[in-house]
Design a protein around this nucleic acid. Structure first.
Lengths: 224, 224
DNA sequence: ATGGAAAAGATTTTCGAAAATCGTTGACTC
DNA sequence: GAGTCAACGATTTTCGAAAATCTTTTCCAT
């Protein structure tokens, strides 16, 4: 089984990327079991790197492990959505507050640049080409990362990163839901402007509200 | 290589416990490389479960992975101590606040019980038998876990747990340091009493102060 | 001596198969 | 018919060795 590296330096890293993307793309649905046989076929490699990839994904909350019954995609639930949102409001809110207090001109530049890249893609819609939508997701994540990047606490940053991707699973469920009623771009802009104006509390509040609105928009999905 | 299960249901679980304990006991010092050959001898098993154990430990910050150079014990530093402390004050402070607001009589009982078990062991000293000191560590962890256990947010709880064990590595460095000048038992009691009196803000403040004092006492170790 | 390339050694990473475990099916008893 | 238990099939978990990669040593040319 001759093997080529794609992005990372180990097969386990490639497997991590591949499986994570497959989950994000909906190839595996929440609750689905992840059989090693399938994943080995998907990734075209042996069991060992797949196992390591699943260990990492489990640490980040994408998958869950049941001893001797293997891994499965972490289920989504209304409870967890609310929990993730509340914890995000706490952690990312504080991280943004610290960023505004500590951030230098370099941080401002990073933030403006990330925002610009994000708004260059006009509008997120279901009928967009998948590649472009995926591109927006990446830039959206980069914008949120830039916001908190100057908080000065690597540990808090790591927590924020994990919470973001955990919440992202919910948001990706509904690309079409958030049209019309909400002005997501405006919310983003407002957070950035408050941050650049060095209004730490205001920016943190706006960010928390932004997350609250996002969660509220998603709750409809679970009312079914 | 005939193998027996000790505590968990898989060898990987046993390896996780064994390696974590070996790090806690100081058999491996911060920065030390963790060679698979050594760990396989220590755990008496093949490479696969050891690898999975290290993946979990890395996710929790006990070890770090350098591609193709293997795992090593995560280094300790003054910066990380301060970072962990600040993040803990944020997360555990809020978790305790929520616990006080949400906790029922069952939570009160758990808290009182955990505290009682902890104070039954008179005083933590260097000349104590290792088993008893280890016992106190376990009960100390259980007390802190009980404090936040009613916060209602599984995700926040998980974060608190990880932060606690991450900070615990620093505290274990200095069992002898905290004698005389500080009244650790008093600090614990005060936090509990404020929590039971349903003073959410007061309890959270006392807990944050408790962590601040602990960190301050430890800073001396890195001044060398 | 110094610098760099090539070989040797040490270690991680990966493989493919064997062993262990779990859930299910079907036979047997009460 | 309900309940228990053994045997089977599916799947995870683990093994021991091979392959890949990094580090160190050695050797040669400058």
């Amino acid at each position: 089984m001759e093997q080529k590296r794609t992005g990372s330096r180990t097969l386990a890293g490639d497997a991590y990327e591949a499986i994570r993307q497959a989950i994000g793309a909906g190839d595996f649905k929440p609750g689905d079991r992840l059989r090693f046989a399938d994943l080995q076929t998907l990734c075209n490699m042996s069991v060992t790197p797949v196992r390591e990839a699943l260990a990492r994904l489990t640490a980040e909350g994408f998958t869950v492990l049941d001893d001797h019954r293997g891994y499965s995609v972490a289920p989504l639930s209304l409870e967890e959505l609310r929990d993730v949102t509340a914890t995000r409001q706490l952690c990312e809110g504080e991280a943004l507050r610290l960023s505004v207090l500590n951030g230098d001109a370099d941080w401002e530049a990073r933030l403006i640049a990330a925002h610009h890249l994000m708004v260059r893609i006009p509008q997120v819609r279901d009928d967009m080409p998948t590649a472009m939508r995926e591109d927006w997701e990446v830039r959206h994540a980069a914008f949120h990362a830039a916001l908190v990047s100057a908080c000065g606490s690597p540990i808090l940053l790591e927590i924020c990163e994990k919470l973001f991707s955990r919440a992202d699973r919910y948001r990706r469920l509904s690309v079409s839901l958030d049209d019309g009623a909400r002005d997501v771009a405006g919310e983003h802009r407002r957070v950035m402007e408050l941050a650049l104006a060095r209004d730490a509390e205001g920016a943190a509040s706006a960010l928390r509200e932004h997350y609250g609105l996002t969660a509220a928009a998603l709750e409809g999905f679970f009312a079914v």
